Simulated scan of single mutants.
Amino acid sequence: MTEAFPPVPPQAGPSGTGPTRTGPDPAIITNQHVLNFYNLWLSRCPPGGFPTKAEMDPLLMGRYLSTLLLLKVHRDPLDFEYRIIGEEVIALLGNMTGKRVGGSAMINLAGSAYANYSWVVEQRLPQFLEGPATTAFRKERVYVMSRVHCPLAEDGQTVDHIISCVAFL
């Protein structure tokens, strides 16, 4: 996998003022915190695969912990469960720990969290987003955010967790 996901060099300051951009290209992201997390995830990817949940050691991620989300992938039917949510994310968006995305999803202007997480599972790629977003809990409040969803796989191939890093601009 690491051949398909090159490291991202430092970028200029955040834009966050235009339309929401989403997709597999890390160039979407202008936030250095999110790019640094993506590069950490890349460093944990084994050749031709994804890191396991255990390989994303909290000791390595200390400076990211307050901005992370960890989701467990459920199948038949496909759904996602919020397992860990960082303090900064909870402070702005609410605590969804233990809830399924199908019933409590964050919604952004480019599509729902469910659709974004499903894309990561189906495409087996990280997904980046930057721009205006809102949540199911606070629909009246628009946030400008930068984030990456990164796949994790116990067997290195089948996405069973998604780890995300979110920064509010």
Rank of each mutant, 00 (worst) to 15 (best):
P6H: 07
P7K: 12
P7C: 12
P7G: 12
V8D: 09
V8Y: 14
P9I: 14
Q11D: 10
A12R: 09
A12W: 08
G13N: 15
P14C: 13
P14I: 13
S15G: 09
T17H: 15
G18W: 04
P19K: 12
P19T: 15
R21I: 15
T22D: 06
P24T: 15
P26S: 06
A27M: 09
I29K: 06
Q32N: 03
H33F: 10
V34I: 06
L35T: 06
F37W: 09
L40P: 00
L40F: 05
P47E: 12
P47F: 11
G48Y: 00
F50G: 00
T52H: 05
E55H: 08
M56H: 00
P58F: 08
P58E: 10
L59T: 08
G62H: 06
S66W: 00
T67F: 15
T67I: 11
L69N: 01
K72N: 07
V73E: 01
H74V: 07
R75K: 05
P77E: 13
P77A: 15
P77R: 11
L78M: 10
F80N: 09
E81L: 08
Y82C: 04
R83N: 06
R83T: 06
R83A: 10
I84F: 05
I84R: 02
I84A: 03
I85W: 02
G86I: 04
G86T: 06
I90S: 02
I90Y: 02
G94P: 00
G94F: 05
M96V: 11
M96W: 11
T97W: 08
R100F: 12
G103W: 14
S104C: 11
S104G: 07
A105T: 07
I107R: 09
I107T: 12
L109G: 08
L109N: 12
S112T: 14
S112W: 10
A113V: 07
A115I: 14
A115K: 15
E122S: 07
R124H: 04
L125V: 11
F128Q: 00
E130F: 03
P132K: 10
A136H: 08
A136S: 13
K139L: 05
K139N: 10
R141L: 13
R141D: 10
V142G: 01
V142R: 08
M145I: 14
R147H: 01
H149V: 13
C150G: 02
A153Q: 02
D155T: 03
G156Q: 09
Q157Y: 06
C165I: 10
V166Q: 04
A167M: 06
L169A: 15
